[in-house]
């Protein structure tokens, strides 16, 4: 699993990247009450706003950690947005992206680097 400074995580299986927000991000947001996942087929550039996650008090963007095309969105979050809090780095994933450039993945932080980054906040 790789991580961004915006607290997204990515897991890569072949050229399909599963993307979600980290446990740290989910904890900071508080109880998630609404999730807007990206449309299928949407073309994303790394850094684009790709989804929105909302707590009782605020809406926050989720950014695409890498470029590619959305091939699947997590439909279960519509009825069960709390999954993002319960299993942020598992069942609470947001979308699957068919990536264009594996080098973007390799450039992301690994877990020790992300944890060091969290320690610096």
């Amino acid at each position: 699993m790789r991580f961004t400074k915006d607290h997204e995580w990515v897991e890569l299986d072949g050229d399909i990247a599963t993307v979600g927000i980290t446990a740290y991000a989910a904890d900071q947001l508080g109880d998630v009450v609404f999730v807007e996942t990206p449309d299928l087929g949407k073309s994303l550039k790394s850094g684009d706003a790709m989804a929105v996650v909302e707590s009782v008090k605020a809406a926050s963007d989720v950014y695409a950690p890498l470029s590619g095309e959305v091939v699947e969105a997590n439909g279960t979050l519509g009825d069960a947005p709390e999954t993002v809090n319960d299993q942020p780095e598992g069942l609470g994933w947001f979308a699957k992206i068919k990536i264009a450039d594996r080098a973007e993945f390799d450039a992301l932080m690994d877990r020790p680097a992300y944890e060091a980054f969290l320690g610096s906040l």
Binding site: G30, D31, V33, S55, V56, K57
Partner: peptide, 12 residues
Amino acid sequence: PVQYKDGVLKEH
């Protein structure tokens, strides 16, 4: 304080 440990939803 915007929230305590319980968070907004539970506090509400």
